[in-house]
Simulated assay, not measured.
Amino acid sequence: MSKTITTWYVDPDAEDRMADGHAPIWRHLIDLMAERDLSQKAVLDFGCNQGGLLRHLYAMRPFRKALGIDIAEQSIARAEALKGNLPVQHAVGASLEGWVEEFDLAISHEVIYLIEDIDAHAADIFKALKPGGVYYAVTGCHTDNPLWPKWRELVAKRTNTVVQDRSISDYGRIFAKAGFEVSGRKLEFDGFIPFVEDGWTPDFADALNYYTQTKIVFRLVKRPG
């Protein structure tokens, strides 16, 4: 994620389908967050794509302001077109240079497995957060996922990105090294999961296991002082 791209997916319609599929996951994630009142908070969505997560967050827990950043130029253009009057700024890129102790809350959903220099990313987020700030990093794309060998081939084929191979423990060590207090949990999505034969899960049982057992939520705290 060191350079910009035009679109995430080779198929231009895939991004809209992805946003529809992620919406219930985003709402579940928001419910899991310990931070309830965001009315005076600044929020970062790293890898925001078309801005859907921030729009859902604002509807559920209105924030003071937010930044959505992504390397896909068309995704950011779409996010800007859809934001309406929300207090959200969007930017194309992968660097948070210039953003120092600006955000109370940061989120990334299925982004960290694509970041080549994950140590630099962890340091970047740490610097951008205020003391006491929290980063929720969510991914099911890790080497502990039994579907990972198949998925990494699909990601390479269907997207304009480069996949990185890391385990759950790898991420824990990297974020701890950056200075974060690291904890985590399974997403344990408790809603109904649609039956979709799109090639990502060989059978429906795999889809059920993925959203309830495999997908991980890291809660990373920048300790004050």
Rank of each mutant, 00 (worst) to 15 (best):
Y136T: 05
V221Y: 07
D206M: 09
I107R: 04
A94I: 13
I193Y: 06
L154A: 10
L105V: 15
Q164D: 05
G98L: 04
F204V: 08
Y211C: 06
A128P: 03
L96D: 01
E197I: 11
F180R: 02
D119R: 15
A205D: 15
P202I: 05
I193V: 11
F204I: 06
F180K: 03
T143S: 04
D190N: 12
G184R: 15
A91N: 10
I107G: 05
K157V: 10
I216L: 14
T139V: 04
L96K: 00
L129P: 02
N145G: 00
A128W: 08
A137I: 01
Q213K: 14
G140C: 00
E97S: 11
F204W: 08
V163Q: 14
G172W: 08
F189P: 07
K150F: 11
P149G: 03
F195K: 13
F126H: 07
Y211M: 04
K186A: 11
T214W: 11
K130G: 05
D144L: 01
G98H: 01
A94L: 09
W200N: 01
F192S: 15
K130N: 02
F180P: 03
H109Q: 14
A120R: 14
Q213M: 13
G199K: 02
H142N: 06
T161D: 14
P87S: 05
H109R: 13
K127Q: 15
Y171P: 08
H90F: 12
V134W: 03
W148L: 00
L86G: 00
G172A: 12
K150S: 14
V100D: 14
I112M: 05
F180N: 01
Y135L: 07
A178S: 07
V100I: 15
L86H: 02
D206Y: 04
V221S: 09
Y210K: 05
R166M: 07
L147T: 06
E188N: 13
F180H: 03
T159F: 06
F175C: 04
A156W: 03
Q164C: 13
G184E: 11
F195Q: 12
A207C: 11
L147M: 02
A207F: 13
E102Y: 11
V182D: 01
W151T: 04
T201Y: 15
W99Y: 13
L220C: 05
W200P: 01
V182F: 02
I174P: 06
Y210H: 09
